[in-house]
Each structure stands twice: as C-alpha cells, then as structure tokens.
Nucleic acid binder design. Structure first.
Lengths: 107, 107
DNA sequence: CCTTTTCGTAAGTCATTGCTTACGGTAAGC
DNA sequence: GCTTACCGTAAGCAATGACTTACGAAAAGG
C-alpha cells in the first residue's frame, strides 16, 4: 500500500540522487547535501518525502540527523512489481503464441 | 537506462490505473478509457507517456489502436531496484550489527 | 551563558503537468 | 462517396511540486 508514495518519491531525479547517495551507508543531512546541486533545505525536504514513503529512516546523533535506507519501502515496490511481472509476462507470452501458427518450445 | 522515465510514468495514479488495466491483456484505447474517471484523450496521453517509458507497446488494428504491456520497461525498473536491493540490505545489516556496540565518532 | 553547528519548517516564486474541450485524420460500413 | 467509429494532438487552465531565502529550535563546546 506504500508503493504508491514510493513511486512518487522515486520519480524525481534529485530525490533519486539523494536516495542513491545513501546506498553506501547512513549519512547526515549535510553530508548528503555536500556535492549536490541543490541547497541543504531542499535535501531536507527530499528526505522528508522519502521517509514518508518508507524508503528511509532517521535517528538523531548529536545535533545531526542521520538517514539510512529503509528496506521496507524497497520491498513494497519490489513485490508490486513482481506481482505485475508474472501476469504481464503470461499475457505477453499468450499474445506471442497466437501470432505465429506454431507454438514454440523452450530454447 | 529508461528506468527514470518509467518511475516518472508510474508515479501518477491515473497512469498506474491505465497500466494495471493492461495487465490482463491487450486493450484498445476506448476499452481502457471505459470505466475510468477521466476522458479518453487523457487516457491517450497517459498511454503516450507509458509508451515513451518503454512500459507499453501499441499496434494498429483497424481503426483502433491496441496497447499491450512491454516487459522491457518493467525489466529496467526491476534490475535497478534489485541492484539497489543488495547494497541497501548489506548496509542495513552492517548498521544493525554495529548498533548494540559502542557509539561511533564520525568527523 | 553565549556561541557555533546542524537541522527542520514557513513563505514565496516559477516551472511542470494532468485534465478538459475542440479539432483533424484514418479506417470501416452502408 | 458519405457517414460513422476511433483515435492522436493542440490549446488553455488549474493544481501540484521543486527550489530558494529567511527564520527558529536543539544539542555541543568553550
């Protein structure tokens, strides 16, 4: 049910870049913002959206706020995609088999 | 590398609904639009975006245009997600193992 | 206590975009 | 040939959203 927000969150290039920057491991807001073409508040807003989508988690560490990737959000998108994947492939194969006269085996 | 457009395409609820309607099999534009809360031209525009994202294909059939799901677009999103999945889980586990230990000092 | 660092949020601006109605174009039916 | 069915596109409009600067709050450090 969260995959909707996750798709919306990952649709924005800047937000994807923020997200990808957390792939190697947890980072503070300032650390993420460093080397990005947008301001730190912008990064903060992006992280908020990612958090509401279940894609990241945060915890305080002194005055800094450290963000990490939350596998839960990724899992939601993945399962939606996989469920889709099966039906789509089945329909795709059914369509492909009807075009030529002979049906094909595996190979 | 079309996963960027795919994410942007799947971010919109109406467009996802159009996409999901093709899951059972190919449909004409009118058939997709029937039973949707938006107009037929709106559906047409959504299908155009989905097509440019590599998520659907179309072919003429008389005066109507039949759209089907293109597994290629799904595949692109899936592989991006999977590649992400591994690194994210590894980092997540590494973080979980270090938490019960001592706190860390990062500059 | 006062200053510094780090961060989230408010307010405002500007571009993007999803929707509608209107129109033109092509294939089928009579 | 003329009408009907089906579809893509153009133009216009209203809403969403991404970004900036400015400000306030909370923790650390002298």
């Amino acid at each position: 049910m969260t995959y909707e927000k996750a798709f919306a969150a990952l649709a924005d290039p800047s937000r994807r870049r923020v997200f990808e920057r957390l792939r190697a491991g947890p980072l503070s807001v300032g650390a993420v913002a460093k080397g990005m073409p947008v301001s730190r508040p912008a990064v903060s807003q992006h992280l908020k959206v990612l958090k509401e989508a279940g894609l990241v988690t945060d915890h305080a560490e002194g005055t800094r706020r450290v963000y990490s990737i939350d596998p839960q959000g990724l899992s939601a998108v993945r399962s939606w995609l996989d469920q889709f994947w099966d039906d789509a492939l089945a329909a795709f194969r059914a369509e492909a088999e009807q075009k030529p006269k002979t049906k094909k085996g595996k190979s």
